Simulated assay, not measured.
Amino acid sequence: MTTNNLLCFPYAGAGAGLFRAWERRRLLRHARLVPVQFPGREELFGRPPCASMAELVEACLPLARRTAAEGPTTLFGHSFGAIVAYETAQRLAAERIPIERLIASGAAAPWLPRPHIGADELNDDEFVANVRDLVGYDHPALNDPELRQLLLPSLRADLGVNENYEPTTRAALPFPVTALLGTDDEMVSANEAEPWVQAGAKGGELIRLRGSHMYFVADVRPLAATLDALLARSSAH
Rank of each mutant, 00 (worst) to 15 (best):
M1N: 13
T3I: 13
T3G: 05
T3R: 09
N4K: 00
N4C: 08
N4D: 08
N5V: 14
F9M: 09
P10I: 12
A12Q: 01
R20G: 01
W22P: 01
R25G: 05
L33W: 04
V34L: 03
V34P: 00
P35K: 06
E42H: 10
F45S: 05
P48V: 06
S52A: 11
E58S: 14
A59P: 00
A59T: 12
P62Q: 08
A69F: 13
G71Y: 09
P72N: 02
H78C: 02
H78G: 01
S79Y: 02
G81D: 03
G81T: 04
G81P: 00
V84N: 02
A85T: 07
Y86W: 12
T88W: 01
A89W: 06
Q90A: 07
R96P: 00
R96S: 14
I97N: 03
I99V: 15
L102E: 13
L102T: 09
G106S: 12
A109N: 12
L112G: 03
P113Y: 15
R114T: 06
R114D: 05
P115Y: 06
P115Q: 04
H116P: 00
H116A: 14
L122N: 10
D124L: 05
D125T: 13
E126D: 15
V131Y: 03
R132Y: 12
D133R: 15
D133P: 01
L134F: 14
V135K: 00
G136A: 11
H139T: 07
P140A: 07
P140S: 06
N143F: 10
D144G: 07
P145R: 03
P145C: 03
E146I: 15
Q149D: 08
Q149C: 10
L152P: 07
L155M: 13
R156N: 07
R156Y: 07
A157S: 15
L159C: 05
G160H: 11
G160C: 12
E163C: 08
N164S: 14
E166G: 12
P167I: 00
T168G: 11
T169Y: 09
A171V: 14
A172D: 02
A172E: 11
A172S: 10
A172C: 07
A172H: 06
F175A: 04
P176G: 00
V177W: 02
T178H: 05
G182P: 04
D185V: 04
A190R: 15
A190I: 13
N191D: 15
E192D: 14
A193C: 05
V197L: 09
A199N: 04
A201H: 14
E205M: 02
E205G: 10
L209E: 04
L209S: 09
H213M: 00
M214P: 00
M214N: 08
D219C: 11
P222Y: 09
P222N: 09
A225K: 10
T226C: 15
L227M: 09
D228G: 01
D228I: 07
A229P: 08
L230S: 10
L231P: 01
A232G: 12
S234F: 10
H237P: 01
